[in-house]
Simulated assay, not measured.
Amino acid sequence: MTGAVSTGSVAGCISDGADGEVSIGEYTGDEVTLEYATAPLFGDVEDELIESLRNAGLNENIDIEFSTGVWGADDQQDRYTQILQAGRSTPDIMLTNFAYTSAFAPREWLVDLNDALPQEKLDELESEYHETMVDAMRWEGGLYGIPQFVDIPTILYRKDYVENAGYDPEEENWSVEPMTWDRFATIASDAVEANDVDHGYTTTLNQRTIGHQTGYEKVVTMGGNYFGEMANQHGPIGDRPVTIDDEPVIETLRLLRTFMHGSDDAHARSDLDGGFLPSAALGWGTTCLLYTSLSG
């Protein structure tokens, strides 16, 4: 799975009550409660989060209420879309994936933090945060989120299984030296045969993740990228190069078909080991994948 930047975004639902427009001004010190829609793991440590916010300067008259739901790219964007389309007054702050920027910002659902933060805070974002993380939250000059954490998933493997297949991960420096997908396929196939198991590789390949997570990581490692250069990622919509039929995307699809159906498949690679990825992965999200991993 590819890494993702999760951010805190301010929903554009702060209104002066007249025309529904966002009204931003200096805090007057009145008692106020803000709702922060976040992931369950943060809701479990809300006391610690409140303490951290106070230590960082949060006014004592500002209270934070945390609301949590099922967290995952598969359904979180849909949930936020329903909330924002309905014009609900809460939540005020949302934990989002950076990929939501291009969907929410053009609809004016989020506050442009260039208008909300003092210049010293904007300068701090520029100087103390990773440039790529901050740029992922920009849309046509606006800034619509602050990076909260970076998620860097990895491919986990059963060390005993690969050792049974004759491999030595330490000797071959697997932890620091990346391998090709061809090499990965050979190892996965050998592990299936040596351990008499059904699958050598499980991942999420449902309608969403095949396009922007587990499928996209393979497109990138094949030398491709959606819309070409990174500068094109957020737009302008309708005026970006179409790369879905470029060779890296086609090779990625052939790779995945080989992993799933084996080299005898009509669209697979005949020179690659395969048949170790279950077709059920086409319906798995990240939560289902976790359950399959825990159940062995």
Rank of each mutant, 00 (worst) to 15 (best):
I14R: 13
G285I: 00
F98P: 00
P118K: 13
S23V: 11
N114D: 04
N114Y: 02
G12A: 10
G145R: 07
A18K: 14
Y216D: 11
G25P: 03
V219N: 05
G29D: 09
M260D: 00
Q233S: 11
V10A: 15
G141E: 11
T90F: 05
V197D: 03
R54Q: 14
N225R: 15
V5D: 14
L113F: 04
L95V: 01
Q119S: 12
M222I: 00
E120I: 04
G262M: 04
Y144F: 14
M94I: 12
S295V: 13
G166T: 03
L58M: 15
L53P: 01
L143Q: 07
T286K: 15
Q85C: 03
D123E: 15
M1H: 13
R107K: 15
K159A: 05
S293D: 05
A105R: 05
S189V: 00
E128A: 14
P178N: 10
L277K: 05
T154M: 13
G69T: 10
G235T: 08
D92M: 00
V192R: 09
I155R: 09
E120K: 11
R138G: 01
H261G: 03
P248I: 09
A4M: 07
F104C: 02
L294S: 08
D190H: 10
T202H: 03
D245R: 13
N164T: 07
E108M: 09
A280K: 13
S295H: 13
L53S: 02
Q119T: 12
P278F: 12
G8S: 13
A191S: 15
A105N: 07
Y80L: 05
L110I: 04
A136V: 01
G57H: 05
A99K: 12
N206E: 09
A188P: 00
L125N: 09
R158E: 07
E171I: 00
R183F: 05
E31M: 04
D239W: 04
S9C: 10
V242L: 13
Y36H: 15
V220S: 02
D30C: 01
F98L: 06
G87K: 05
F66T: 01
T180C: 03
Y216G: 03
T96E: 07
T68P: 02
W174C: 02
N59Y: 06
Y36M: 15
M179T: 11
A188F: 00
E131P: 01
N225Y: 13
V242Y: 14
E171M: 07
T214Y: 10
H199R: 06
D135T: 15
F149D: 05
R183I: 00
L253K: 13
R54T: 12
T204H: 07
G29A: 08
I244A: 09
D168F: 03
S279R: 11
L290D: 09
E46N: 12
T7Y: 11
D239G: 01
G274V: 01
T286A: 11
E140P: 04
E140Q: 15
D123Q: 14
N232E: 12
A99Q: 11
N59W: 06
E120W: 10
Y161H: 15
D75Q: 10
M179C: 06
R240A: 10
A185D: 02
T38Y: 02
D30G: 09
P118R: 14
G296L: 09
